[in-house]
Write a protein that binds this DNA or RNA. Structure first.
Lengths: 206, 206
DNA sequence: CTGCGGACTGAACATCTGTTTAGCATGACG
DNA sequence: CGTCATGCTAAACAGATGTTCAGTCCGCAG
């Protein structure tokens, strides 16, 4: 039917991978069947195995594809910005992969934290980022906080009353809220912070 | 063997529920088999069904149990603090339930956001919380940020080099980092914030 | 044309897994 | 003592699911 000389149609292999990406990200790997992926891609379940060998290999291929997309074609620098600007299925897949704890995703997470730490260190040197006593921990926390809305997207959408939490409208509306906290904080005084520090000291030398 | 008159041993029903709670939270519902739960509890798979009817009912029983624990016995007020002070398996289960999107967890999430919004509103009135242009969105975001370290616990543990991310030591070490951001922010100027606002206006009236 | 290699499929296979069923032990109650 | 409910189990069942197998179709090199 679809000849290989037709440039408009993507190859069956790519369609399978894209369908898997979509479903894996939306429902989680274990809830997705090869038959469902095959149906989405319009092929037989056997072809999925023919091209990828196994479901696990297919998942790894999705990992690799997403990592390649986020790392970008030219430079080898992954970036949270690049990630957050990726297409919705890609973002959802990555968030899901991080939550499921695949090894490729773990490596990517580590890389992103490193780059974020460097970025914050630059900002600190240049004066637009505040000093931190634990810069590495802060970078890691910052990354998880940027990922949090991705992980809890359905809950945020419901609570905030938006239809598509990944849409540009929702992003433009709620990104300033996060940025406001990142810029001015939430609490006006050191009261809570000092309370925690006191607990820590009390616990450290009893 | 274990007679019902022995008060030291918990009932098989409770052991099944606790085993399920533990495994569901650690691995996710789909990856856990009834046989594994039964083995953990030291009973037969059939007894799991005998007591709970089905795997789905067992999951709902876990939901209800966790919700009851977090809501507390006396007052009907769930609280993020109560949740974060819960035992590790309970916390992990709730985080997993929120990520999997069960209906009970969704209701609990909504409740927690409401209470957090009230709490922040109180703080704003009393002067220890900064003003927000979107207080409800800020409350929701705040909740997801407190949940984020739970969701990405394995990655944080790896990156920060701690063995048990849920332990008291890790909490005492890293909670001040979060609180520092919540108190002082990360960025020193409104530059990033203004940039976003500009994008929003540009997008809003092209 | 002939043969070959790769894309592709329908059907079957093997296994895993939630659930059912029939039955066993034990203690309570008449 | 009989029997009846209850907690519990072993074994089997049924459906889903990842994977294999044998074979078809088709473009193409020789």
């Amino acid at each position: 039917m679809v000849s290989s000389s037709d440039p408009s149609a993507s190859s069956a292999r790519d369609r399978i991978r894209d369908s898997a990406l979509e479903r894996f990200g939306r429902d989680g790997v274990n809830r997705v069947t090869i038959r469902a992926i095959a149906a989405d891609a319009g092929v037989s379940p056997a072809l999925v195995i023919h091209h990828f060998g196994s479901k696990e290999s297919l998942r790894k291929a999705c990992d690799a594809h997403v990592v390649a997309l986020i790392r970008g074609g030219d430079d080898a620098a992954p970036d949270l910005t690049a990630m957050l600007e990726s297409a919705t299925p890609v973002r959802r897949y990555l968030a899901r992969a991080l939550l499921d704890g695949t090894s490729d995703a773990a490596a990517l997470f580590d890389e992103i934290v490193e780059l974020t730490a460097d970025w914050l260190a630059d900002g600190e040197r240049e004066g637009w980022v505040r000093h931190s006593e634990q810069p590495h921990a802060r970078a890691a926390l910052y990354v998880t906080w940027l990922l949090a809305p991705l992980a809890f997207d359905t809950h945020l959408a419901r609570v905030l009353g938006v239809a598509d939490p990944h849409g540009i409208d929702a992003t433009l509306r709620f990104a300033p809220v996060a940025l406001d906290v990142f810029t001015h904080g939430i609490f006006t005084s050191d009261r809570e912070l000092e309370a925690w520090r006191a607990v820590g000291k009390e616990h450290g030398s009893p």
